[in-house]
Simulated assay, not measured.
Amino acid sequence: MPRKPIKISQEKVVIGISVVLFSIFSIVLDKFLSEGNIIALLKNVSILGTLAVGMGLVVVGRGIDLTMVAVMVVGVAFSIWVSSLGIDFTVAVLIGAVLVALIGLFTGVMIAFAEIPPIFATLAIASSIYGTGRIIFPSDVLYAPNNVGWLKWVGSGTLFGIPASVLIFGIVSVTMGLFLRKTRFGRLVYATGDNPNAARNMGLPTRPIIVTQYIISALIAFIAGLIMTGLVTGINTRIYNSSLIYDVLLVVVLGGIGLSGGQGGVRNVIVGTILVGILTNGMTILNVSYTNQNLIKSVILLTALAIDAIINPRDEQTSQTGDI
């Protein structure tokens, strides 16, 4: 019997590149395989990966969420600011979670009901969130109380030798994976992302689905912010001006979640996170400047977008309404 041809997917290509990069860095860079560097790599990947899980959900639903970094830094900064007024930090975190959920609700309503294209709506809302935070908060950098046990565990705790931040990323990933693949809502997200008009004509509640996606995305961004706060004991709101949101998009697109919607999942996010994490860590050890790192990642993102456009061509409906 003739052998079946091996199907080469974008996911397998990314895994192969990750293995090659890891091998090269392990040989060339003395510090790459050190315990401290591996732990640092895992912790950094946990923040990027957690954000990418939320972005992946929205992209599967044929959207995009450029508010994630703004929501992350302002939501956590708001919680720290509230705790400085004498409120218990854990309660302040719950208040911050309510705030970011409301932001996600507003974003979703603007996109689903006002029908503003997601890329413009989220870009404008992100700037508004960050600008409001700059007015309210007394400083760009806010530090969390140093006596919060669970926050210390998030930053430096381990379980079976695995950093707590990585465990949280794993929990978020598994939960989202099950949510997308095993629940009715998840199937509705794929249906809406695959063909919004057909889903609407079938009577599916596409608008509430879109709104819910942005609420979940905002809450996941908040979780990523708490991970960051645990790792560095505070939050720097100026991170909003960094290239982090583009790194998140790079992870999602590179991993194989098409911007045309309706395909991909958490596994793609994990694959993309590993590659970007290894690449960034290696460039940092090589003392590649921040500007050059952004240039390299920008070229990779542009290439990934071009590949995505070829693999997932725009259909007639997408061409008329815009996939983002």
Rank of each mutant, 00 (worst) to 15 (best):
V232K: 02
D140C: 05
Y214W: 05
D140A: 15
Q213S: 12
Y214H: 14
R181G: 07
P163G: 03
A164Q: 00
A112L: 12
F106S: 11
I235L: 08
G155D: 05
T158E: 11
S156F: 09
I171W: 00
A198N: 07
Y246A: 13
F120W: 06
S128H: 00
N146A: 13
L123R: 02
R207H: 13
P163N: 01
T237N: 09
G157V: 05
L105H: 02
I210C: 07
I220C: 08
I125L: 12
K152V: 13
S139M: 06
G186N: 11
Y246R: 02
F179I: 10
T229C: 14
I235S: 10
V232E: 09
G203C: 12
Y246W: 13
W150L: 06
N201Y: 14
I168R: 01
G193V: 10
P145M: 12
A126T: 08
T212Y: 12
F169S: 03
Y246M: 14
N201R: 14
L226S: 05
F222W: 02
F106T: 11
V232G: 04
A126V: 09
R238H: 09
T175A: 15
W153M: 03
L226C: 04
V109Y: 12
T192N: 13
A221F: 03
L178V: 12
P145Q: 09
F160T: 01
R184F: 14
M202V: 03
I227M: 05
Y214D: 11
V211I: 15
G155N: 05
N236H: 08
L142I: 07
G133C: 07
G203T: 11
I171C: 07
A218N: 03
A218S: 13
V141T: 13
R181F: 05
A114I: 15
S139E: 11
Y246V: 06
F185E: 01
L151Q: 02
D247E: 13
I209P: 08
N201L: 15
Y130W: 13
I216V: 14
Y190H: 10
L178S: 09
P118F: 07
A221I: 05
T122Q: 06
T132V: 14
F113W: 12
N197M: 15
G161E: 03
V248R: 04
A198G: 10
G203I: 13
I135F: 11
T206E: 11
G161Y: 02
S173Y: 03
I210W: 02
L105Q: 04
D247A: 07
I129Y: 01
G131K: 05
K182P: 01
Y190M: 10
R134P: 06
T122Y: 06
V189Y: 04
Y190F: 15
N197Y: 14
I136Y: 00
G170W: 00
V141R: 04
L231G: 09
